[in-house]
Amino acid sequence: MLIVEDVTKNFGQFNALKNINLEFHNGVYGLLAPNGAGKTTLIKMLTTLLFPTSGSIRYDGEDIIKMDERYREMIGYLPQEFGYYKNYSPTSYLLYLAALKGIHRKTAIARVEELLKTVALDHVANKKMKKFSGGMIQRVGIAQAMLNDPKILILDEPTAGLDPKERVRFRNLLTNLARDRIVILSTHIVSDVESIANEIIMIKNQEVLYKDTVSNICGNIQGLVYETKVAYDETERFRSTYLTLSEKQENGSMYMRFLTEDTAKAEWKPVHPNLEDVFLYIYQDGVLSDDQTA
């Protein structure tokens, strides 16, 4: 079990995160927040790349900083900006990282081969990475994160650059992996986590706003989301009155999905809120106070 207890992180005068309390068990956790909200700061603290200004992070009761390499050998990490060596092949790069992860050369060779098959890069295993597409590089990144069969898998924006087919494959892979490990997936793309996360963590104003299941989080705005048809010349006025969540053109009219606390009108059709609705709602400044949403 991984516990984040009263963690605050300041960079000089700037407060990036304050009093974060979280608990992770085996399963997928979606860390959902817009860019700049502090996701990467939290993730870097979970990977010991940053140190909390106050508070502690403990694994099975032991401080991860004190655990040092005993902790790091259990984690797999894909950073948001995954760097690579252009003149290395995926095999040589993964073997290098395997050495850093303390994996014996013989074991590493077999593991690299297996992982490159898993991420469908076995056909370019010995090609230099300088000619790889963004999606291929990202798959190398996913493979390296899994090299040491980690107990804690931390992925920061892992689906960036992946095509829809690869995303589906990746989500399935994570679901399988999460059976016996903690998977923390940071993203600002709601669809990446909506279907697979056991719990969603949302950060706002440097603090944890939600840590709950998708349905419970969506329940917070139950009865506030509607769809309706709006004439073209009315769309501007409609947008300024209500928080529009999505818009669609059809048969010369605009179909608006929106959120409001006003009493429902007859032409409004109530719909079930999804995670994206919550995301847009939460991160629209001034729509509702934090107290009302919590």
């Binding site: 790091r72 050998e73 990490y77 760097g83 690579y84 992860k101 303390g102």
Partner: peptide, 20 residues
């Protein structure tokens, strides 16, 4: 090398970490 090739986050989060 790691900082200039943007691989520092991956390299220093491994078991060997900063002892590298």
């Amino acid at each position: 090398y790691e900082f200039e090739h943007k691989t520092s986050l991956v390299a220093y989060a491994t078991k060997r970490g900063r002892r590298l």
